[in-house]
Structures are given as C-alpha cells and as structure tokens.
Design a protein around this nucleic acid. Structure first.
Lengths: 215, 215
DNA sequence: CTCCCTCTGTGACAACAGTCACTGTGCTCC
DNA sequence: GGAGCACAGTGACTGTTGTCACAGAGGGAG
C-alpha cells in the first residue's frame, strides 16, 4: 500500500526530497473525495494543508447570500495556498474548495507543514511558489471582474476551463452562471452569440469548444 | 547617518534579528519618494524587494486602457508582497505602487532577499506573513467587487481610507472614482446620498467622515 | 476684484446585466 | 409511448452604472 502511494506522490511532486517524502507518507492521510464533495468550507476550522494528488478541485468564494464565484482551479501536483495561510493563523477558512472530478487529496497536519518550512528546502520552495502562483491567478480573476464585461469574463472562464479539462465542457448554463456570479438567461444569451461566431457549439449539458482565440 | 537608519528600521521592523538588520543596512538602499511618485510600474523589471519605512503607498492594478483600481494600502512596517514574488521569477511587474504621502522605502536587491529566506528565520516569517496578509486583503477587495454594488464598495473604500489616514479624506471625487474604476458623477451622487444620511460631510477637495458604520 | 481653472452638482439618456414569465426540447423513468 | 423534469431559448421590463452636457461654486494668480 505504502509504496504505491510513494510512487504516486513522487510522480506528482517530483521536486520533494526523499526525507520529506518519508515524512509525508508517515504523518499525512490521503482522502478520496467524490465529484461534488466539499474539501474546504467557509467558516470551517482548517487544521491541514491540502495537496492534490489526482482529480480536479475548484476553489471559490462564497458570500452570505450563497452567491459564489470561481477563484481558480487546482490541478494535481499543486497545493491549496489558502489552506496553508489560514492554517498558520488558526483562522477560519474564507473560501470553499469542491471536487470537480473524483479526486485524491493529501492532508498534512498544519503543525508539520509549518515545521517543514524550515526543515526541508524543497517544501519551502514549494510553498513559496504556490503562494506566488495563486496570487497571480487571483490577480487575473480580479482583473477580469474589475475591467471586463460579462462577455469577456465568460470567454476567460471558458478558456480556463478548456485548459484544465479539455474542449468538452460538461456544464449546464446554470452552473456557469453560478461560477461567474451571474444568471442563467444572461449566460445563455452570451453563449448563443459565441455559437453564432462559430467559436463553440452548444449541446444539452455540454459545450463543444472550437476556437476561443479568434473571437 | 547609519545609526539613525538603524534605529528607524528597528522601530518599524522590531521583529528582525540583529544580523539581518546589519545586512539590510549594509546592502540595501533607502529611497525617499514624494507624494505621487511611482514606486513600481506595470511592465517594469523588478530587481528589488520593497519595504516601507515611513509614509503611505497605494498598490493598484492598471489595465491597457489606463483604468485602475485599488488593491490595498501599504503602511510603514510592511512589504510589497508582489515585489517579492515577481522578483523571484524575474517577471515583469503586474501592478503599480504609488506614494500617497511622501515616503521612505528600503530597496533590497532581490538575490539577497531570496538568500535571507533560508538564512534568517525572522525574514522568512516576515515574508510568509506578508504574503498571507496581502492575500487576505486582496480577497476582501475581490469580494467587494464581485458581490457588492458600487454604494457598498464606496463605503468599504472610505472605511479603509479612514483606517490608514484618518477621518479627513483629502481626495477629489475624481480620484475616488479612479481608484474604484468608476466615474466621477456616479461617485458624486453616492457621496451626496451618504452626506444626507449624516455619515459624512462634503467639502471641496476633502471629505469629513463622521460615522460609516451606522449606514 | 476678476479671470480662470478645477471641483462639484444635476438632469437626461444609453448600455449592460438581472429578473420575470413563458415556451420549447430532449432525456429518463414508468 | 407518454408523463415529468431539468435544461435551454426568448421577449419584455427594471435597476444600476456609465456618459454627455452643462451649470454653479470656490480658490488662487494676476
């Protein structure tokens, strides 16, 4: 059992040092989550750092009225930077993470991930790099909300989705509307326009992407 | 000269170890900037980590058409987290930082601030803490843009401004509109409404804040 | 004091996005 | 095959924000 995990972890996180790998195997737990499961919840007390081994997570923000919007996707080999931050301050999570596909996550007790920062250079680099990458993605999201109309935001959203899970977007218009914090009718209309330009083809429950760049 | 700086730095950054302080004194330069000066520019090649010694900086995003919006303010004793990130990857800056008041900044060559991460625990903690704090502030900004109407965003903006520079907000409506990526007329109208509730009093070139919480 | 420039106030209008109401359409389960 | 249901399309309307045009108000320079 253990050696399987070790190979898998090594495959996803090739930059980790041997001793670090050993510690991860020894002290962390691996949790399998199903499509739609919530990995982190707003208001939840985080006591683990989350690494993604396989599958796909979406990280999003939710307000009091249940509105949401997508921050970014997490792919295998990356960490939820937020979980590290809140962890360290023993704060409540301000974000939600949900499994888009069935996924495997590694849960590392916070006090260890904190210790490892000083102990393992590869861990330290990994954490710093994660912060940076998420920060940049967050900035991109921010840009698109602040400066762009909904039509461009939709394009941005579709492109990002294609990047993480291919040209068949298996989402209803309602789901897309939720992630952009908009409404189904509006998204339907915009998608229709995109179809008319030939960039996509609409089907029931999925969208076929041809070319989003020439729009 | 040097001992003055040392005291000042120690005062603003009391958590730094002695040897770290020595290195900062030895290798970094202190730059005095005037109100309105740009400390970082979009597209500029960053080769220094920026620490703020005195004054006040605003950090904001700018798009191709010159629209801007405020990300957060930097107060003395804090660092521009972004400058650290971009630095490390030798990337171009995606943000702007401008002095709101006359300020003194410490510029630390990137290769050193990178080295110090491993060398000085207090530096390492400082950097991690900076990332976390900025991330959280950015999330707040994101929330207010994504979920709130302009009226609430204006309130949020005014509150934040009061926190960093007091109840006399010395800005024209135009400046506020710019930082919220809106237009002067709209801001004028909303401010007028706020005045009618008694929360603020409008003057030429400055706003007197009474109580923003009861609105 | 007067000229001039910037800041502020206001009405009219336009554009985008959200909401409502309703229709159509394809899939699934009896 | 038909009933029921979730998904998708569409027109009409509303509200918020942005834009335009213009008018007043305050303050500084000469």
């Amino acid at each position: 059992m253990e050696h399987i995990h070790k190979d898998v972890i090594l495959h996803r996180f090739p930059q980790f040092e041997q001793p670090l790998l050993e510690e991860i195997l020894k002290h962390s737990t691996i949790r399998e989550v199903e499509e739609g499961d919530e990995v982190l919840r707003t208001g939840q007390y985080i006591r683990s750092t989350v690494l993604l081994l396989s599958g796909l997570l979406k990280v999003y923000r939710e307000d009091d009225e249940g509105n949401e919007f997508l921050m970014y996707y997490l792919e295998p080999g990356s960490a939820c930077a937020l979980s590290m931050m809140c962890t360290a301050r023993n704060e409540q999570s301000q974000i939600m993470a949900k499994a888009v596909d069935a996924s495997e996550v590694i849960l590392i007790p916070s006090h260890l991930s904190e210790q490892w920062l000083a102990k393992y250079k590869s861990w330290h680099n990994f954490v710093i790099a994660s912060y940076r990458q998420r920060f940049e993605e967050l900035l991109q999201t921010l840009d698109s909300i602040a400066f762009k109309g909904l039509d461009e935001r939709l394009l941005f959203y579709l492109k990002r989705h294609v990047k993480v899970s291919g040209k068949e977007i298996r989402l209803s218009h309602q789901q897309i509307a939720d992630e952009l914090n908009s409404s189904r009718e509006v998204i339907s209309r915009l998608l229709k326009k995109l179809e008319q330009t030939g960039a996509i083809t609409l089907h029931r429950n999925y969208i076929e992407v041809h070319n989003l760049d020439k729009v």
